[in-house]
């Protein structure tokens, strides 16, 4: 078996303690949560941290909480907990839609929301989900706590605004009545990363689209979203023709690479199909809530 290079190991006792250790140990220290992204990289020796700081004991980062009209998800929440949450499925169906197709049930028992966001894989489904939800990300570090938008959170493939001495603590988004959402993904096989995936969030007011988010995974969309398509939809009547056009726009504005999952033209095609399906699903979900 492939095995990691030698590494030191410490356990964080609290968020502050984790930050203190990161500060003390410097940029060669890495936080480890579920470990399902970091450990495979370490086994391949593509990642070689000098020290791992285990944050699995930080129970105060494991929560799913309604806070007025904001839904807060702690960074240590496991994928399986997100998938099983009644609150989440009522508020944002896009999350269980996506979680059901992230990796596999055993990996989901271990992998965490914060870990997935910080790994920042270009095909990360949760990145597209939280983009569609216009989520905010709470980051804590020696310079205090900051809350940033998911727009601009990613600075490139596998790279985010979280500094080496910081810890992502929470992802949150604004909920509202009638907020409908859905996620659509095509993969080569169950458990594989997406060939392409699209998520949509939609809310209507007086028949007009009052809120909309379209998230795209694995297709090189800036900030994992189709912002031109979103802008096009906002304030208009939700008609099939409108959705068709938005799906076409989403397809045009992403920038997929060809790889063994498929040629870029196919991925672009999928974005159109899946965006359209996600918008339909989101609208239907929203209407279900109105009734």
């Amino acid at each position: 078996m492939q095995v990691p290079a030698p590494v030191e190991y410490e356990r964080a006792l609290s968020v502050d303690d984790a930050i203190e250790r990161l500060t003390r140990l410097g940029p060669e220290a890495r936080l480890v949560a579920g470990g399902h992204s970091l450990l495979p990289m370490m086994k391949l020796r593509l990642a070689r941290p000098e020290c791992l700081i285990d944050i699995n004991g930080l129970a105060d980062l494991s929560f799913i909480r309604r806070d007025g009209n904001v839904l807060r998800i702690g960074a240590m929440t496991r994928h399986s907990e997100l998938l099983a949450s009644q609150v989440i499925s009522e508020v944002a169906k896009i999350i269980p839609d996506a979680e059901a197709v992230i990796a596999d049930p055993i990996v989901r028992n271990r992998g965490t929301v914060g870990g997935s966001m910080c790994q920042a894989d270009p095909a990360e489904d949760l990145s597209a989900v939280f983009a569609a939800l216009d989520a905010m990300v709470e980051i804590r570090g020696p310079r205090g706590t900051r809350v940033v938008s998911v727009n601009g959170f990613h600075t490139g493939p596998y790279s985010t605004v979280v500094e080496p001495d910081e810890i992502l603590t929470e992802v949150s988004f604004v909920t509202q009545k009638n907020l409908g959402s859905a996620y659509e993904k095509v993969e080569r096989r169950v458990g594989d990363w997406a060939i392409a995936a699209a998520g949509a969030v939609i809310a209507l007011q007086d028949g007009k689209i009052q809120r909309v988010g379209i998230g795209l995974a694995a297709v090189g969309a800036p900030d994992f979203r189709a912002s031109r398509a979103e802008a096009y939809l906002l304030g208009k009547d939700a008609t099939p023709d409108l959705f068709d056009e938005a799906a076409r726009m989403a397809s045009a504005e992403c920038n997929p690479n060809s790889d063994q999952r498929g040629p870029s033209a196919y991925k672009r095609h999928l974005v159109e199909v899946l965006t359209r399906r996600a918008l339909d699903g989101a609208l239907s979900n929203s209407k279900g809530k109105a009734n």
């Binding site: 095509v186 080569r188 060939i195 999952r261 040629p263 196919y266 095609h269």
Partner: peptide, 8 residues
Amino acid sequence: LTPAQVWQ
């Protein structure tokens, strides 16, 4: 016959 190959 992956999805990409079928589409092609």
